[in-house]
Design a protein around this nucleic acid. Sequence first.
DNA 1: CCGATGGTGCACCCATCGGTGCACTATACA
DNA 2: TGTATAGTGCACCGATGGGTGCACCATCGG
Lengths: 109, 109
Amino acid sequence: MGAPSATLDATFFALSDPQRRGILERLGRGTATLSQLAGPSGLTLNGIKKHVGILEFAGLVQTEKVGRVRECRLGPATTLGEAGEWIETHRRTWEGRLDRFERFVEGAE
Amino acid sequence: MGAPSATLDATFFALSDPQRRGILERLGRGTATLSQLAGPSGLTLNGIKKHVGILEFAGLVQTEKVGRVRECRLGPATTLGEAGEWIETHRRTWEGRLDRFERFVEGAE
DNA sequence: CCGATGGTGCACCCATCGGTGCACTATACA
DNA sequence: TGTATAGTGCACCGATGGGTGCACCATCGG
């Protein structure tokens, strides 16, 4: 578990930007082209392309060039799943630790 | 849900570094001072202090100066919980989307 | 009081991020 | 054919991240 995971790095980093989380939410409602993603964001096509690139590098989205358009869709759910597992695992030890702390407090008074 | 959350930004960003995840895992086994965190990491005290600062800013750890030592412990589990919720929520729509895609494929053939 | 220890503040370095503009290619469409 | 549209590649910018070293302060142990 302690092995440093580049996948986790990329995934968490990709999720750390509201613009990118917005793209994911948008893609959750169906595929979109780069222009369609850029529209509501107020960003340049280039800016969007970079964000999508980061999301794609993390495996969170997949893109495909069809005609003169690049279609973006969500990637395999396993990528998010890995990040979710990390959080769940550590949240358990977290709460375990808090339990121990509370027992310690009770025992001390 | 679509509201940009600075908390999520900070949390996901803090988790995007293996060194910081290592600190969290270490703190999961009990409190530690900055020197104790720096020891196995091979980093400077200053480097560790910055990482702890980022984790603290995200609410993932809490620190307290006791004597000439700074004690670090895990923060409230709610901080991790918020990030976990985001992932869980979106993983569900993720899988929902895949279901729809599979139905589409089946219907098309 | 004195020395060693644990932290802090600051300035600095280099790499990367977020974002832009511009020139360019490739496709769609009339 | 010509023209508008969708992306791409590249260079650029300011801000920030990760990390260091050094000078300094505060505290603990004699």
